[in-house]
Measured scan of single mutants.
Amino acid sequence: EVTIKANLIFANGSTQTAEFKGTFEKATSEAYAYADTLKKDNGEYTVDVADKGYTLNAKFAG
């Protein structure tokens, strides 16, 4: 089991951190699915991958 950390950075400057656990593939998929649920209210996002894929920095356009 691994933990994927998602740093969510919103256009207004606020941030949120979420963690997803499971296999690498499952946890990564859940992190992206969570970011997708936030698109409606926060706009499209881009992701910078860090820490060999164990940290995802998602920046929302607003």
Rank of each mutant, 00 (worst) to 15 (best):
T17L: 10
G53H: 03
K39P: 01
E30A: 14
E1Y: 13
A35K: 00
D51W: 00
K5W: 08
E1P: 10
G53W: 01
G13A: 05
A11M: 09
Y54Q: 06
Y32D: 01
T23M: 07
T17V: 13
Y54K: 08
N42R: 10
T17C: 13
L8D: 01
E44F: 09
K40D: 10
K5I: 14
A35Y: 15
G13E: 04
I9N: 06
T15K: 12
A33F: 08
A18I: 15
N12G: 07
A27Y: 00
T37C: 14
T15Y: 12
G22Q: 00
F24D: 02
Y34F: 12
D48T: 15
F20G: 02
V49G: 04
T23F: 06
N57W: 08
D41S: 12
D51L: 00
E1I: 15
D41E: 14
Y54G: 05
F60D: 02
A27W: 02
V49I: 13
A35H: 00
D41G: 09
T15N: 07
T3C: 12
E19A: 08
G13V: 03
A58C: 15
K26P: 01
N7C: 13
L8Y: 15
E1K: 09
A11R: 08
Y34N: 02
A18S: 08
D41T: 13
D51A: 00
G22N: 05
V2G: 03
K5V: 14
N42Y: 15
A50Y: 11
F24K: 08
G22P: 02
A33Y: 08
G43Q: 01
A18Q: 13
T46P: 01
G43D: 02
Q16D: 09
L56S: 04
A50L: 14
V47R: 01
A58H: 06
Q16T: 11
I4C: 02
A31K: 00
A35I: 15
A18T: 11
K40Y: 11
E44N: 12
G22V: 02
K40C: 13
E1S: 11
K5M: 10
G53R: 00
A50T: 13
D51K: 01
A33S: 09
K40E: 11
A35T: 07
T37K: 13
D51S: 00
T28W: 15
A31I: 07
V47M: 15
E30F: 06
V49N: 04
G22M: 00
V49P: 06
A33Q: 10
S29G: 10
D48C: 15
F60K: 00
N42Q: 13
A35W: 14
T3F: 05
S29Y: 12
A6R: 00
G53V: 00
F24S: 03
E44L: 09
E44H: 10
L8F: 15
A18V: 15
K52R: 12
T46Q: 09
K26E: 13
F20V: 03
A27I: 03
K40T: 11
A11P: 14
S29P: 02
A35V: 15
D51I: 00
K40G: 11
T28K: 07
A50S: 12
Y34K: 03
A61Y: 12
T15R: 13
G62R: 06
T15A: 09
Y32T: 05
E1R: 10
T3D: 02
F20C: 03
K40A: 14
V2D: 03
T37Q: 13
S29C: 15
E25Q: 10
A33E: 10
E44A: 10
V2R: 05
N12C: 11
N42D: 04
D48V: 14
A18F: 15
D36F: 00
N57A: 03
T46M: 09
F10Q: 04
L56D: 04
G22C: 04
V49T: 10
A31N: 02
K52I: 05
G22R: 00
N12E: 05
